[in-house]
Amino acid sequence: MKDSVLLEADQLLETARQLRLDILEMTTKAGSGHPSSSWSAVELVTALYFGGILRYRANEPWWPARDRFIMSKGHAAPLLYAALAKAGYFPREELWTLREVGSPVQGHPIQGMMPGVEATTGSLGQGLSLGLGHVLGGRLTGQKFSVFVLLGDGECEAGQIWEAAMAASHYKAGNLVAMLDYNKYQETGPISREIALEPLVDKWKSFGWNVQEVNGHEIKEVIAALTLAQQLEATAKPQIIIAHTIKGKGVSFVEADFTYHGRALNAEQAALAREEINGTR
């Protein structure tokens, strides 16, 4: 489809690798940030921007008919910025100014501060409501676009998510597609230990949503689920893809230790991580 980018399978894998590396370099240079929360969703965002799903024009970021992508889990900002740079919204060099005074590359996304940054997020639980607003607006203005929202699992503990889930169902928002990065950990520990979300599929179904479950690191599977979700728009039910993921995916010692949440890797750790991501170790 015009206005979307569909890379070959090997290029998709290579893109995911590049995003992972950029996330590492950005956060290590900044000395802070959330690499592990970004890494768990790399394939989800890669599939969206480079798997022929999202319709966008990098040289016309606010093209009114664009599909929307809202990064509700705002702490995964490094992933959003890396994907936008890769898609051509701004020069990749800007990534290295993350969290620096005077840089628009804020620690958490601020709407419109960088081209393609659709929403201000970071206080969690807010993105799904914004997505629903875009859907209702598109309906009024007669623009046919889809709205994709990347949710964290921890933020599904927030009441606003379920307010939005109820309203999206009421308003028959079939073109609202949520992707849930279900990496099973929140800041202080395993979700099942802190505030359990299960049975999650049942919860979303009972709110009137079409639910799919995928392995969130298999790009082909994610693309297939996103494609099906768009076909299911006709059911007039909102869509959610619950993506089973691994927090810190791609870097073994981060995968193994949830206390890496909100921690950048130091130079020594980054060297090891670089080798793992590049497959040279």
């Binding site: 929403a119 993105g127 914004l130 629903l132 607003g133 209702l136 607006g137 606003q160 307010e163 309203a167």
Partner: peptide
């Protein structure tokens, strides 16, 4: 909370 978010989304559209 949802009311305000939906409103902001409408502005985005």
């Amino acid at each position: 909370s949802n009311l305000v978010g939906v409103g902001a989304g409408l502005a985005g559209a």
